[in-house]
Design a protein around this nucleic acid. Structure first.
Lengths: 100, 100
DNA sequence: TACGTATATAAGCGCAAGCGTATACAGCGT
DNA sequence: ACGCTGTATACGCTTGCGCTTATATACGTA
């Protein structure tokens, strides 16, 4: 699975937002998603790991998950060339409004 | 389907990159993807339409597709709060290298 | 060693995505 | 009107995702 499919899943975006606040153990993340079972969350974490979006380090029997800095950057790199589309569009819109 | 799932598909990202160069008719897009049949491309275009990533206008019996300015911006809006992660990480790395 | 806790993996299921073939629909030219 | 071209939709099929239950693995503690 690639990083685009990884973030296409709402639950995984939720996990990313939780890890953006601070590191959390797998158990804390499971508790944050009461609609899902522990194995379901564990599988999502595995996908986030394998796509390089998060990293794990052991702490005794727990696993501490953290957002990886360069994971989402790959999406940002992809979107960058297209950014001019809405920037130019906004500029044209502002110009239009100015001329009213 | 939401915009994240829409761009998670490699074929649809390819279509987006083609439309970023210039507008194209549905037929031109079909010809640009020889691995796929015409209905397959047409369905991808429908998804891009429904998620607001492209717009269409008729030209006789042809349909001219164009990239929509504010479509990808929704992904950019989502990624923006996380941008500080790799920016801060890069800053910390530079600082570290400076101190060597 | 034995048991409890924390996390990951296995197995099986339902569902939706993506594909191709076949077909419908719309506009063009004769 | 008729056939031809361009595009979209219907249908059936296969495949892979995400889920749950059950189980394995690893660490902590008495």
């Amino acid at each position: 699975m690639d990083v685009f499919e990884a973030v296409a899943e709402p639950t995984r975006r939720h996990l990313i937002s939780l890890l953006a606040e601070r590191e959390r153990t797998a158990g804390e993340l499971v508790d944050s998603l009461p609609a899902l079972t522990q194995p379901a969350v564990s599988r999502h974490l595995r996908i986030l790991r394998e796509t390089g979006l998060v990293e794990v380090r052991p702490d005794g029997q727990r696993r501490i998950y953290a957002l990886k800095p360069d994971g989402l950057q790959r999406i940002d790199d992809w979107i960058t060339p297209y950014r001019r589309f809405w920037r130019d569009h906004l500029a044209a819109l502002e110009q239009h409004l100015e001329n009213q």
